[in-house]
């Protein structure tokens, strides 16, 4: 019986402070420029079992990641949060926004993920697996914003299968040396003597290569983990998708892997263990090589509206930005 692993998509969560910042930027800096702008977004563990996994953008999204110049403000992730690299395409008119080359932009983002996997950038920084694009049209005069999110996930030739019936739920109390502050985005673990205890080996960047090669050598199934924004008992969140692609590309002989979806140390966190069969990427890799080693496969991840359609979203902030309306509200 096939048991296809299904991933829960991100829901974008644009903080009002982001729109304020975009308006200011548009007026003061960007003016009529439509150049792409790098953004930083974050995700964290779901605060409740009943909330969507959010990809959050806040006022500081425009700040640079690591600036050498110390006088400049740098982007600081909130605690227990993980980075997603974004690119903003802000258009000057509604028509430009409508006619923007959406497919091309989405493909470009997918290509960047693929290239970073192939050229080894991800080995040093796994956050590069998480990318998004944001298309906007900011009608600053009326405090209205149109936007679309694309959060690409590369597709393997075959969907990833689970070789167990259901994800196993695991007890968090028994994971040793897990401290919330320092838990990397993707990591590897060791199972303790007792079936239910785990120990953190290190981040994928630091220890992944050695650990996975050791596992391949002695034929054991490696155990990896990631910080999962999704709270569902049977599904992992989006950040796992490109990570699994990364593993299959980087370790072609790796056939099976166990994955801990870590959801935080809270009382209600709902950690699960997935047992997965990795698809062969060799066909895809060959195909890419013929295409000049560029990603030409498929990828998915446009944010859908409530009807499941890929359509732009709209937000009006007149009630919190319009000085006249504000005057009415304040007492």
């Amino acid at each position: 019986m096939s048991n296809t692993l299904q991933f829960k998509e991100f829901s974008s969560f644009v903080n009002i402070s982001f729109w304020h910042e975009l308006s200011n930027k548009k007026l003061d800096e960007l003016k009529l420029s439509e150049e792409p702008i790098p953004l930083n977004a974050h995700y964290t563990f779901s605060p409740s079992q009943q909330l969507d996994p959010f990809l959050c953008l806040e006022f500081n999204a425009f700040l640079k990641n690591n600036t050498i110049n110390t006088t400049e403000n740098t982007y600081v992730l909130p605690p227990r949060s993980y980075l997603s690299h974004g690119t903003l395409f802000n258009y000057n008119t509604v028509d430009d926004f409508k006619q923007s080359p959406k497919l091309k932009l989405f493909d470009e983002a997918s290509k960047r993920i693929w290239n970073d996997i192939k050229n080894g950038n991800v080995d040093k920084d796994t956050s590069l697996l998480n990318r998004f694009i944001l298309l906007t049209y900011a009608d600053i005069k009326n405090h209205q914003f149109y936007y679309m999110f694309g959060i690409p996930a590369l597709l393997p030739s075959q969907p990833i299968q689970q070789f167990t019936e259901q994800p196993e739920s695991i007890n968090i109390e028994s994971i040793k040396s897990f401290s919330n502050q320092s838990l990397p985005q993707y990591f590897c673990l060791r199972q303790g003597d007792d079936q239910s205890s785990f120990e953190l080996i290190g981040s994928i960047e630091e220890k992944g290569n050695q650990y996975l090669n050791d596992c391949l050598k002695d034929g054991s199934i490696p155990l990896v983990g990631f910080c999962d924004p999704c709270p569902l008992p049977s599904n992992p969140g989006w950040p796992l998708r490109n990570f699994l692609i990364y593993l299959s590309v980087k370790y072609p002989s790796l056939k099976k892997v166990k994955v801990i979806c870590f959801r935080g140390n809270g009382v209600n966190s709902n950690n699960i263990l997935l047992s997965l069969e990795l698809p062969s990427m060799s066909e895809l890799i060959e195909k890419q090589q013929q295409d000049g080693d560029q990603w030409s496969g498929k990828s998915v991840g446009w944010e859908k509206d409530t009807n499941g359609k890929i359509a732009p979203r709209f937000v009006s902030l007149a009630s919190t930005m319009d000085p006249l309306k504000l005057a009415e509200q304040s007492v």
């Binding site: 405090h143 998915v300 890929i310 007149a318």
Partner: peptide
């Protein structure tokens, strides 16, 4: 908040996504 645009106008028929069985 002023006129709400009809977002159906914005529907871009070019972006139809691959039906992906791995999406919840």
């Amino acid at each position: 908040d002023g006129d709400i645009p009809d977002l159906d106008d914005f529907q871009d028929d070019n972006i139809i996504e691959e039906d992906d069985p791995a999406v919840l």
